[in-house]
Amino acid sequence: MVCWLPAASYVIVRGYATLATQAHHSTTRRDFIFVATGAVGAVGAAAVVWPLINQLNPDASTLALASIEFDLAAIPEGQSVTITWRGLPVFVRHRTPAEIEEARSVPLSELKDPQTDEERTKEGHAQWLIMVANCTHLGCVPIGDSGDFDGWFCPCHGSHYDTAGRIRQGPAPTNLVVPPYQFISDTLVQIG
């Protein structure tokens, strides 16, 4: 059975070459028909192959959940919740003014992956920190309200994140990822 695959490809390549050679020795009309048939066949083959690959892409029911809306009103200051977005855990934290102050007072030069707190939150909504809850080292979920920087601590390999979710110490290379999101109203946020 195995020999059929290379054999078939050989036939296709050599077969078309034979046709082309024959075409070369004959009239233009014959040439045209061969070329047109080959071209139309190639288009058809591509049109068949694409859906066979595209079926691997996320289906309609998955895409329908690619973007979710979340109501922040129920989260009191100083608390966070973990929600699911695209199958990933996402931290939503209602930060206290002290946490915000702490995050903003750190000089960028002290950061492994320099990013300001403003870049990680939305203007006018500084109390809300939303980020994908997978440690950027190897994907564990860090523990909240812990670590040496009052933010998160990943128990797997000891990465410490600060109150803006930025990596401060440990093996993780980058800050916790902020997903694309926008505020629809003061308390309603659309993630994705």
Partner: peptide, 27 residues
């Protein structure tokens, strides 16, 4: 790749193929 061979899920998984999978109805 999209079908589930379980008596509780098989019927709906075929409909899932028809409705949600890209090009599933044709395949």
């Amino acid at each position: 790749m999209h079908y589930t061979p379980n008596v509780n899920l098989a019927f709906d998984s075929v409909e899932h193929i028809r409705r949600d999978v890209n090009g599933g109805r044709i395949i």
